[in-house]
Nucleic acid binder design. Sequence first.
DNA 1: CAAGACCTATCTACCAATTGATAGGTATTT
DNA 2: AAATACCTATCAATTGGTAGATAGGTCTTG
Lengths: 167, 167
Amino acid sequence: MSDTVDAIMDAAERRIRVAGYSGFSFREIAADVGVKSASIHYHFPTKSALAAAVAHRYNARVVKAADDAIAAGQDVINAWKSVFRSALDDGAKMCLCGSLGATVGDLTPDVAHEVRQFFNAVIASLIAGGLSDERALHVLSALEGAILIASAQGDPAIFDRATSDLG
Amino acid sequence: MSDTVDAIMDAAERRIRVAGYSGFSFREIAADVGVKSASIHYHFPTKSALAAAVAHRYNARVVKAADDAIAAGQDVINAWKSVFRSALDDGAKMCLCGSLGATVGDLTPDVAHEVRQFFNAVIASLIAGGLSDERALHVLSALEGAILIASAQGDPAIFDRATSDLG
DNA sequence: CAAGACCTATCTACCAATTGATAGGTATTT
DNA sequence: AAATACCTATCAATTGGTAGATAGGTCTTG
């Protein structure tokens, strides 16, 4: 993978997490990276292909971070709590899939599919950690909601208070 | 209030709750209502003025619905749970302020202010109902997250399962 | 009461800017 | 020479927003 591809995906992820799918443009990403917008089309044919690739990478990275924390001995709820919490740290940013999923009607099917896969992966991880179906859904909802509120209010500490009685 | 103004706000609310702030255009709203886009500018000078007005109306309506349920004797958590749940019923739609708040970087300050006011109003209502600060934040997060996941997955029953152990 | 003035709500027509996307050229590397 | 990775230039469509006209209602005033 080239440097440029990574930089494009980094910039796209950053912007999606702040402003959503329709909240970024190829030219903004290009300016962030220091290339021209046509160069982004060279690597990603369409906007939805870029967003889907970003979501796919995000899913893998976040699930791996949780898996690592669990493998290191942390209990499954606290593992996921700290994964979500650390997403807030740089710039009070939303969960990528929360940001996309909140406006699911604005997404192409491929992007929506990645978003749903993320939610399913988190639930599966929580269930694998011993939680019931309903409890897993509740924990995912509480984390996704807490990051949404904290991000909208611009105050990461809200996340901590909203999730203090979770784990 | 004229019929047209209501129809414009109804259409805008519907579209924002499905696709977010950047997910609707004046011409789409105009087509929904059966007028021309210039007529919308007559009633709402800018896009953000329309969105802010829609959010303001939504906040008042939703808070009143919860207040009524509480006044009718329902406990505060179940009152808010049923208010959020009923939002899902017509078309698996998001909470308006959740949809807007998830992409807060895409909003003008006036719209962002309405969104924050909604969250604060829900928290205040929960605290007035006897909950601690942290518990109120947790309930709001859980409801907002549950409606997000259920709406993204297109399955309202997910909301029920995610919130079954809340009240 | 009649007439002119004003207000409301809509329209047609347009604008500048931005959008995602394409075509075709140009270095650099393999 | 062929592939890679970028560029310039451009396109058609869409965007939020504006200008100006028009039809109909209401108010004021002689």
